[in-house]
Nucleic acid binder design. Structure first.
Length: 910
DNA sequence: GGGAATGAAAC
DNA sequence: GTTTCATTCCC
């Protein structure tokens, strides 16, 4: 039973089941928690309500307590638990597998094994988890700004209820009950939207109010947040916008600010959610603006938006207007169009515009579909004009140039995306004309949708996402035909027809229609699908594949490689691919692999990819400039790794690719062109969060024991390392074989030689190790017979690490100096490798391996100083400490170099 | 509730 | 540097 039950979700189940009533900390994400714990919608709702009531009565403190209690009984959801770290995530994800394999083992044993696996786990893979954990944490923190990991003294204090809860409560949220509280319940409390703004006095309301507010706001927040968050951007654009429409929009639509959505788009679902929640809380609390600034992504997005803000805003305004006054839609549309036209003419008076309009009109007359397409195009044009009538022409003219000059930026891509979104929304909105669509409409719509969702279906919501998504879906479906046309158009654009599009809209449209086959799913599609998929997620169907496919590998690499797989996870989970990496299904691999695909991608789809790439580049720059490199870096690393792994399917799937993708897209898009994008994220927001969270879990690569075994082998093998050590390797591996005798080695301070060597190997052949893996299946043994146990081990390990680090430092010179030269070379070598490897693990491997080997000889020197594993660990640790986690480790191709460099640096710093 | 692991935060 | 807590669940 146990084992069987434990499957993947059991964790949640277990909690739900009440296995552990233990802790009741507020959940960091209500939604997430809910999902995780239990998806029962009904219960959640009820619970929520109940909880709320209780909370109200009790007050902030009470709330926590209550929650906790409630949790015990009913829903654990409420407590916010501290975010899991990478290892925990890993454990959570793999524990079931371990247990399956080793039914005998109890959790402890499983934990040990997991630890071993974790130790063996490739840095890449580890990073995935680490990144996830990081995001998770970030989201959590956003959601619960006041959250403290350790209550410090509070613990005892608060536990009003004597129960075990004391702990939880304590640390849960110290000062700001209001803030904190909200997060947990918020999701559920949707019902009381009014409270949100509320202004509710935190004092009076206590945590409850906050919770409620948060919940509702979370959903609805986007709007608010948008307004608050991006005053700068929005304003500036607004100012620019002279058109009456704008004013009208402002007045009419509270939601007018598209900004919010954008933000969301940028950030991963979790982030978005967190932001939303945080926003909500902040709203109550006070500084909406800050919130915006907090997240790097957000800032980035802002920046991007700022650049494009004008465009966006205009369109947004229009949209808003429309949205707000659905009734007037048509009339307004006419007005808007007229106005726009007027403006155009006035400002630019470009004939082209007129032409477009004419075309559009004609098309409209002819066929709705055409209309939509043209409209979209028109919209784009319009928007552009809006921004700078003067520049508009340039842009158009330059389009071609852009391609040539800026391969990265895919103007077309941006437009594509937008369009894609637009259609969908349009459908929803029922707007015949395309204008609204273009840029951020989604944003506007999103908020509304969100609200609606909440209002309409709290229940549904629980269902979660389903309901929400459904709505969107439904709408979309209604206009599938339109959508399709749009899609086609998008695709065409993506392909590069864009330039033509402007000039010759019609042709394109038609062209791609057929293409929609999606096999290729150009960029354009992806976005749409993503959005849709998200919405649909509820159903979970997710055409994840499609989405994934659609997602450009680039994104993946950039944002996080996880994507794609999105997952297949569940199914796959059970059977991780032994080879993990290699295992990727061909189809997936093709799609998934970022890097590998790069080559292909380029060939296949220039446009979309370009756009993505451009986005990446832009983002990267921005991030760097901003100093946000950290997050970015992590993403990049992931991407690389993922690519390296290749899509191994599972791995990549990690989070919601979607979220990442969106984020990136959004960001990049914003910067350069109006991309706008996906706003839907906002909608998805809450729902998505849930989904994403789940997805993330699911998506996290689940490695089959076999894989680990292999890895395990490799690890030991690593010891062996390069040539000479082979004998040693074997020794180590065999001797201690199991689990990590290595540890002992390390503990012991690692004999310079052995340990180092072995590690070196790792370094040298990170990814390969698996391949190379000697044949020593040992890993899985449940219990290890290590001399050190528990804390001792930990200490030993730390010591070991420290030791290494110091060595490095001491050596800094040594390690650095000595290694530097060689490493650099290796790095160079490795870099290329890394890039290529992705293509196909196997192929890449081969190549890489060879390369590695070639480099291997050199390695020894380096290895002599530290082992790769040690380095990696150190680097990881250091990074973590630094706050950036990143890096490093991508041993795939370049074990030595990458890790070393960081290490050295760290040392230097120290 | 303890424990097995790791990690992150807080002290 | 040391504690606490996160997850999981048997003992």
């Amino acid at each position: 039973m146990k084992g069987s039950n434990r499957n993947k979700d059991h964790s949640a189940e277990g909690e739900v089941a009440g296995k552990r009533p233990k802790r009741k900390c507020l959940q960091w994400h209500p939604l997430l928690a809910n999902k995780l714990l239990d998806f029962s919608e009904e219960e959640e709702e009820e619970d929520e309500e109940e909880d709320i009531d209780k909370v109200q009565l009790l007050g902030a403190d009470g709330l926590e307590q209550d929650v906790g209690e409630a949790d015990d009984d009913e829903s654990p959801e409420q407590r916010a638990r501290r975010p899991m770290n990478a290892f925990l995530l890993f454990c959570k994800r793999h524990r079931s597998l371990v247990r399956q394999e080793h039914p005998k083992l109890d959790n402890r044993g499983a934990t040990k094994i997991l630890a071993d696996w974790w130790a063996v786990l490739d840095p890449k893979e580890k990073q995935k988890y680490t990144d996830m954990a990081k995001e998770y944490k970030d989201a959590f923190m956003k959601a619960n700004p006041g959250y403290k990991w350790c209550p410090t003294t509070n613990k005892p204090v608060k536990s009003p209820t004597p129960t075990v809860n004391s702990r939880k409560k304590l640390w849960a949220f110290p000062s700001d009950s209001s803030r904190d509280l909200p997060s947990p319940k918020k999701a559920k409390t949707e019902e009381m939207p009014q409270l949100n703004f509320g202004m509710a006095d935190p004092t009076q309301m206590g945590g409850l109010s906050m919770l409620l507010l948060a919940g509702e706001h979370a959903l609805g927040t986007p709007e608010i947040s948008s307004g608050a968050c991006r005053p700068d951007i929005s304003e500036s654009p607004e100012l620019r916008q002279k058109s009456p429409l704008f004013q009208f929009a402002e007045i009419s639509s509270s939601t007018s600010h598209p900004d919010a959505p954008t933000k969301q788009c940028q950030a991963s679902a979790l982030f978005q959610f967190a932001e939303i929640s945080s926003n909500t809380s902040k709203l109550g609390g006070a500084e909406p603006v800050k919130r915006c600034g907090k997240s790097a992504l957000f800032q980035l997005a802002e920046m991007c938006l700022a650049s494009e803000g004008v465009k966006m805003e205009e369109t947004k305004l229009i949209k808003t207007k429309e949205s707000d006054s659905g009734r007037i839609k048509e009339l307004e549309k006419g007005k808007e169009e007229r106005e726009i036209k007027v403006e155009k003419t006035d400002t630019t008076g470009s004939q082209e515009e007129e032409e477009f309009e004419k075309l559009a009109k004609e098309n409209l007359r002819e066929s709705k579909e055409l209309r939509n397409l043209e409209e979209l195009q028109m919209d784009d044009v319009m928007s552009i004009k809006m921004e700078d009538s003067k520049e508009i022409r340039k842009e158009e003219l330059e389009e071609d140039q852009k391609y040539s000059h800026f391969p990265d930026f895919s103007y077309s891509a941006s437009s594509k995306i937008i369009i894609s979104d637009v259609p969908n929304r349009k459908d929803h909105m029922c707007h015949p004309h395309g204008i609204m669509i273009i840029e951020d409409p989604s944003a506007l719509n999103k908020p509304e949708k969100l609200k609606k969702k909440k209002k309409k279906s709290k229940m549904d919501r629980h269902g979660n996402d389903k309901s929400t998504p459904k709505k969107s879906c439904k709408k979309r479906q209604s206009s599938e035909s339109d959508i399709e046309s749009v899609i086609y158009t998008i695709e065409a654009v993506a392909k590069g027809d864009w330039g033509v599009d402007k000039l010759g809209e019609t042709p394109r449209k038609k062209i791609r229609t057929s293409s929609s086959g999606k096999g290729n799913l150009l960029d354009a599609k992806p976005p749409k699908k993503k959005v849709k998929s998200r919405e649909k997620k509820m159903s979970k169907e997710k055409s994840s594949d499609i989405t994934k496919e659609s997602r450009p590998p680039d994104f993946i690499s950039i944002s996080t490689s996880k994507n794609i797989s999105g997952e297949v996870p569940e199914g796959i989970k059970a059977e991780p691919l032994t080879p993990t990496e290699d295992a990727l299904p061909p189809s997936l691999s093709g799609q998934a692999k970022p890097e590998d695909s790069e080559c292909h991608r380029k060939i296949e789809t220039c446009g979309s990819r370009k756009s993505e790439r451009s986005c990446k580049g832009a983002l990267y720059k921005t991030l760097v400039s901003e100093g946000m490199l950290t997050s970015l870096r992590a993403n990049v690393d992931r991407g690389k790794r993922s690519s390296g792994k290749g899509n191994s399917s599972d791995h990549e799937g990690c989070w919601g690719d979607e979220s990442w993708t969106f984020n990136q897209c959004g960001t990049s898009g914003n910067k350069k062109f109006k991309k706008t994008k996906p706003k839907e994220d906002c909608l998805l927001g809450s729902a998505k969060l849930d989904e994403e969270f789940e997805k993330k879990f699911n998506s996290l690569p689940q490695y089959s024991p076999v894989t680990f075994d292999r890895k395990g082998i490799p690890v030991p093998r690593k010891k062996k390392k390069t040539g000479n050590v082979s004998s040693e390797l074997t020794k180590t591996s065999k001797g201690s074989g199991d689990k990590w005798s290595n540890k002992q080695l390390f503990l012991d301070a690692i004999h310079p030689t052995e340990a180092i060597f072995s590690e070196d190997k790792n370094t040298t052949e990170p990814a390969y190790k698996v391949k190379n893996a000697l044949s020593i299946p040992n890993t899985p043994e449940p219990t290890m017979q290590e001399p050190l146990v528990g804390s001792q081990k930990r200490k030993a390990r730390k010591t070991k690490i420290t030791h290494l680090v110091r060595t490095a430092d001491g050596r800094v010179s040594p390690a650095g100096g000595t290694l530097d030269d060689k490493p650099k070379e290796q790095l160079q070598r490795s870099l290329p490798k890394a890039s290529q490897p992705d293509c196909s693990d196997e192929c890449a491997h081969t190549t890489e391996v060879e390369e590695v080997r070639s480099s291997t000889p050199e390695i020894p020197a380096v290895s002599a100083f530290f082992s790769l594993a040690a380095l990696a660990e150190v680097a990881a640790m250091e990074n973590v400490h630094r706050g950036q986690r990143s890096t490093p480790l991508t041993h795939d191709g370049q074990p030595k170099e990458m890790p070393q460099a960081p290490v050295l640096i760290s040392c230097a710093d120290q």
